[in-house]
Design a protein around this nucleic acid. Structure first.
Lengths: 177, 177
DNA sequence: CAATATAGGTTGCGAATCACTACCTACTAT
DNA sequence: ATAGTAGGTAGTGATTCGCAACCTATATTG
């Protein structure tokens, strides 16, 4: 922890708490513009100039972010067959899997920041009814709050329904999220 | 949009796309360390020096972040009655409401970054069984993917189940997340 | 009471990142 | 051949980050 060079370069968040995967997730997605680029990708944008115009981001920063998002497997580059100048940026499965996180963040912003019901509304295509608020659910579907949660050791998972009052591997109330 | 001073200062993300609340949500939570401080708050830390030691963040940055999180209503300051040097930082309802977002991000990191099942496991206190993956759900509880989603105008919400094939206010496939 | 320690900052400085403009290269269209 | 487009790099100024030093108010200790 002593001070070698003049200044330590920015330490990766992932090494702060190795036990938790939140810092690792933030390593790429925590940077400025990353979520906005992801949003634009979900909105159907695929090309450098499209992102540039839509987001109003600087060219070099966009280039840097796209490179990092590709490196971390959230986007993939693909050359266009019809125009070999163009490159397509498309969401990978890993990138698509960020949709719940993004919608949760959006719903939070809707509820607490903008306040307005936000038009248009995101709905299920099948019945045209709004989606539910993103929430934490128990195995049987009950919605849980932070008061209902605790941590147990993975080794004690199997005997969960068995013995109730004994030593049951509870670690802490909220130990490490 | 023209260029007044030598350089425009950093434009708030919220003004990029006023129609969507994701940029507004990112205004505070998109900064480096914000989610890590939130996580530490959920983990039961309440004091400046605790955050300092736990996160290894610089003092001035921590001070700045805590101020911003308080300003945006995610944390609240409260003086300690037993020791008037101390200040307690506690999650507000707005801050507590970020838990689904944070767990979604954590689960994503677990699945795609660390890979390992991550020990200990977050479980429902009542039956000690792991929580479900955070997901997008239709009003009836079906899990939806990005292929199942579309946007409709809020004015067309009421006649959703009525006329099916007519003009029904569909805006775009994925318009603005 | 004086001396010291603690909690929560603020200030100053070097390093890294961001934003803006100006290029630059490969390819396409005319 | 010439001009235009897509994607990206390089240079420069502004902002933020990381580190150490200092500062103020309160607690603790002798």
């Amino acid at each position: 922890m002593n001070h070698n060079g003049p200044y330590k370069l920015r330490e990766p968040l992932a090494e702060i708490a190795a036990c938790c995967s939140l810092p690792q997730a933030l390593e790429t997605m925590g940077e400025r513009w990353s979520f906005m680029i992801l949003r634009a990708s979900f909105n159907g944008l695929h090309h450098f100039e499209e992102f540039l115009e839509e987001l109003g981001i600087a060219r070099n920063i966009l280039s840097n972010r796209l490179t990092r998002l590709v490196e971390s497997g959230i986007l993939k580059r693909a050359p266009c067959v019809d125009d070999r100048r163009k490159i397509e940026y498309r969401l990978t499965d890993k990138g698509l899997d960020l949709l719940p996180t993004m919608i949760a963040l959006r719903q939070w912003g809707e509820k607490w920041e903008s306040g307005v019901p936000s038009n248009p509304v995101l709905v299920d295509e099948r019945d045209r009814r709004p989606i539910q608020p993103i929430s934490i659910r128990a195995h049987d579907g009950r919605v849980l709050t932070h008061n209902d949660l605790c941590w147990i050791d993975i080794a004690d998972l199997n005997n969960a329904t068995g013995n109730e009052g004994e030593h049951d591997g509870v670690v802490k109330r909220i130990a490490t999220i």
